[in-house]
Every structure is written in C-alpha cells, then in structure tokens.
Amino acid sequence: MKCDTTSLIKKILCYGVISSTLLMVSGTIIILVLCSQAQSPLTLLIANDGFGSSMLNSFTICTSEGQIADFFMGSGILVLIAIPVSRLGITVVQFISDRDRKYVVISAFVAVVIAISFLVIGPLEACFKL
C-alpha cells in the first residue's frame, strides 16, 4: 500500500465516521426537540414484528417533523455503509496501479459479492419476500 492511498483511506475513515455520527446526533436532537411528547417506538417496533408493510420510522410516531429527523438519521446510516465500500474501491484501484493481477482479481471478487448483495439479493428479498 502506498502512502497516498494510506492517507486517503485515513481521511475517508475519519470524515466518514465524524459526518455520519453528526448526522445521527442531529436527527436524534431534532426528534427529541420536535417530538418530545411522542411515545417510545419500541411498542410499534415489537408489534410490527418488522414484517408488516408499514415500516417504522420517525413519521410513524411523530408526523411530519419526524421525517426531517429520519432523513438525518437515515443519511448517517448510508454514509456509514459507504465507508467500507469506498475503502474497498480504493484498494482495488491500488492493486490495479500496482499491476498486482492476482489481488486485482481477489479484491474485484469481494467487490462483486458486495454488489450482488446490494443490487441483486437485497432487491429480490425486498420484492419477493424470499
């Protein structure tokens, strides 16, 4: 691994964790301030059993203000998921620039497995409830 890649990955890890945490904290503060009278989502979470058509979100417990909070918290989650994926992307590029064919194939295989999870199995599972 070359130094420039190392510092790039460090930056992604640092800014990724900080920004996702800030987004989640913001969402939490928003929902606590705007929906202070709302009930705990636990009852809905358990009653819903996770399998109902109505996905539990902040909107469920706190109408429109909850949507803003949900947006922040959801964005924080997406930023977090993107961190290891982008780290993998950089590693693949690094192996390509090093002309390390063996590890280009190996790291590309990992990328394909993750892509299949997000783009094939996940949507199939969501659509057809396998």
């Binding site: 989502p41 949900d70 959801g74």
Partner: peptide, 9 residues
Amino acid sequence: YPLLSAPVV
C-alpha cells in the same frame, strides 16, 4: 430502522 440504529451507533 434509523430510530433504533442511531442511538445504538
């Protein structure tokens, strides 16, 4: 669920 994941994280 963002409402569960956020405080856990």
